[in-house]
């Protein structure tokens, strides 16, 4: 059962196509991260899903409803926190919560009190007097207290200093244990996402590069390091799927995005008959950097 589904979803700002043919499925109960560099189309995708923008083509369903038909009933089950969201800064934290509460029949005052304590928010202080981290926590609180089925976070870490970021993630993780909700998070902050997400999708230039579970992704990407043991590295026959190929100082390194122990070892034995091959696990950040570099090189190649 998917809480979000999109089919060839596209959005165009005048002549610029910000999102192209996005086909995505977010399983219910997952923590789904939409990754991508700045300008990759993450926020546009979320805005279309939240009915803040209309799709130019394709379709999106959220909670089983066309995104363009999201109404009060569906929005009462969705929590949304965005770095750019304009909160009423003249309100105090208490006033913000008092204002939001009546709109949600499922508002849990017990959970609200618990989250208030947990987030250590000063209720009598105006939102404009809060630090950015505190402000994001206040927004998160106002989006969690009604136990939404779907929590959408758009770049929630941006602009937060490391300490506040840690607090925010910790708060999110703790909150996640209090309810059973699906989290859909867009970010370019891979390290934080790695701690949270069990599903990953990567957007690049408005297009979906891949979407899979974090576990599968981390399993299929491996950094391969080959000690050539004095022999020269191969100049031909290198699989085009290998990324970041580098051969210098008697060592060859590359990233195999489709690592399978037996197959990779077999190819390596053919290419480096005397070499010693070592496969290392990669972090999400390393995978992201390799993919970004590969794209840059491809781009340069194309330009040349």
């Amino acid at each position: 059962m998917n809480i979000i589904e999109t089919q060839n979803l596209s959005h165009r700002y005048w002549r610029t196509e910000a999102l192209r043919d996005l086909t995505l499925a977010v399983p219910t109960g997952s923590v789904f991260a939409l990754l991508g560099a700045n300008g990759a189309g993450k926020t546009t995708a979320i805005k279309v899903l939240m009915n803040l923008l209309r799709p130019s083509a394709g379709s999106a369903r959220v909670l089983g409803v066309e995104s363009s038909r999201l109404g009060e009933r569906e929005l009462a089950q969705i929590g949304y926190v965005s770095e750019n969201q304009q909160l009423s800064l003249w309100m105090t934290v208490r006033q913000l919560l008092d204002y939001c509460r009546p709109f949600y029949p499922t508002w849990d005052t017990g959970l609200e009190a618990r989250l208030l304590r947990q987030f250590d928010l000063p209720t009598d202080r105006k939102l404009k007097q809060l630090s950015r981290g505190m402000l994001m926590k206040a927004a998160l609180l106002s989006s969690l207290a009604y136990r939404p089925k779907l929590l959408v976070l758009d770049e929630p870490f941006s602009g937060l200093d490391p300490l506040v970021r840690d607090e925010f993630v910790a708060g999110l993780l703790e909150a996640a244990q209090l309810g059973e909700w699906t989290v859909f998070i867009s970010s370019h902050d891979i390290e934080e996402v790695e701690r949270l997400a069990d599903h990953i999708a990567l957007l690049d230039d408005g297009r979906l590069k891949f979407t899979e579970t974090t576990e599968a992704l981390l399993k299929r990407f491996r950094r391969i390091e080959v000690d050539l043991n004095g022999s020269a590295g191969p100049t031909t026959g290198i699989p085009s799927s290998w990324l970041g190929w580098k051969c210098e100082g008697g060592r060859a390194t590359f990233c195999d995005p489709a690592f399978a122990r037996e197959a990779t070892e077999r190819i390596c034995r053919e290419l480096f008959p005397t070499g010693t091959v070592e496969a290392k696990a990669m972090t999400l950040r390393e995978i992201f950097v390799v993919l970004a570099r590969a794209k840059k090189l491809t781009g340069k190649g194309a330009a040349a």
Binding site: M50, L52, G71, E72, R73, L75, C100, F103
Partner: peptide, 16 residues
């Protein structure tokens, strides 16, 4: 409660 900007608070809340 702006009707134009996509970052308005009300537009992601259950307010028609």
């Amino acid at each position: 409660d702006s009707l134009v900007i996509t970052t308005a608070f009300w537009s992601t809340r259950p307010i028609s």
